[in-house]
Write a protein that binds this DNA or RNA. Structure first.
Lengths: 115, 115
DNA sequence: CGTATTCTCAACCTATCAGTTTATAAGCCA
DNA sequence: TGGCTTATAAACTGATAGGTTGAGAATACG
C-alpha cells in the first residue's frame, strides 16, 4: 500500500505538470486548451493529465467531446501539509543556524547540537 | 536550465528518501546509521543520499571515515513556499466548493465560475 | 448518413531510476 | 605495514517515465 503522497510528489516533479496545475488554478480548462499551451503533442498532455488525475491533483469530467479539467485544492494542500511537518526547522533561530552551516558546508564536520 | 524544484519534488517522491529526511529532522546522522534503518543495501542508501544532496535537501560533511548528513531547512521550506502559491484555493468558501465538486465528480460537467 | 472535432488508447523508443553485486577509496588502529 | 571500518564508485538489471506516431472512440453537425 504505497503512500498516496508518493504520486503527488512524482506528479509535481515534472515542470509541464506544474504548469498545467498553475493554469488550472486560474480556472477550469479542456484538454485541448491545455495542450495548446505546450510544445508537445496532445497525446503527451493527455498522459500528463492522467498522472495528475491518478495523483488526485485534478478531476476530469466529460462534456460532449471535450474533457474539462479542474484542480483539486485539497490534494494540492496535502503538499503544504507535508511540508508543515518541518516548519519548526526553519523558524526562529534555525534561520541563522542554517545560513551558517550552509557557508561552512565542506568543513567543520562537528555534528549539530540538539535543540 | 531546469528549475531546481524539479529535483526537490523528484527526491521527495521516494518514500525511503522522505523517511531519511524525517530521521534527519530529529538530528544529524551518519550514512551508516541511516543505512541501518532500511532493508536495502548501504550502497542504495548512499545513492539516495546523493539524490537528496543534489536536490539541496541535505548536506554531507566528512569526519574520518564517517559522513555526517544534515537536513537543509531552507530547501525543505521551498516545498512549503511552492504550495503556498495555491493557498487561496483551499481557503474560505473553497473548502465547501471542493467537497461539493468532489462528490459530483463524474457528472455535471458545467465549468466552475470564476471567484 | 458521413465528416469534422476532440480526446484517449496502444505500441514503440530512449533515458532514467531503484536496486543489486563487485570493487575501491579513505581513515583508524594494532 | 596490514587489516578493519565506513562509505562511495562502477557496472549491470528490470521497471518506469516522457516523448513520439498511428489508430480509434465519442460526439456534434452538415
Amino acid at each position: 500500500m504505497p503512500d498516496p503522497i508518493d504520486g503527488v510528489f512524482a506528479a509535481l516533479a515534472d515542470p509541464t505538470r506544474r504548469a498545467i496545475l498553475a493554469r488550472l488554478a486560474t480556472g477550469d480548462a479542456t484538454a485541448g486548451e491545455l495542450a495548446a499551451d505546450f510544445p508537445i503533442s496532445a497525446q503527451a498532455v493527455s498522459k500528463h493529465l492522467n498522472v495528475l488525475e491518478t495523483a488526485g491533483l485534478i478531476v476530469r469530467t466529460r462534456e460532449a467531446q471535450r474533457r474539462w479539467c479542474r484542480i483539486v485544492p485539497a490534494q494540492v494542500r496535502s503538499v503544504a501539509d507535508w511540508a508543515s511537518q518541518y516548519e519548526r526547522l526553519w523558524e526562529e533561530r534555525y534561520d541563522a543556524l542554517d545560513d551558517y552551516l550552509g557557508r561552512l558546508q565542506q568543513q567543520q564536520p562537528k555534528p549539530q547540537e540538539e535543540p
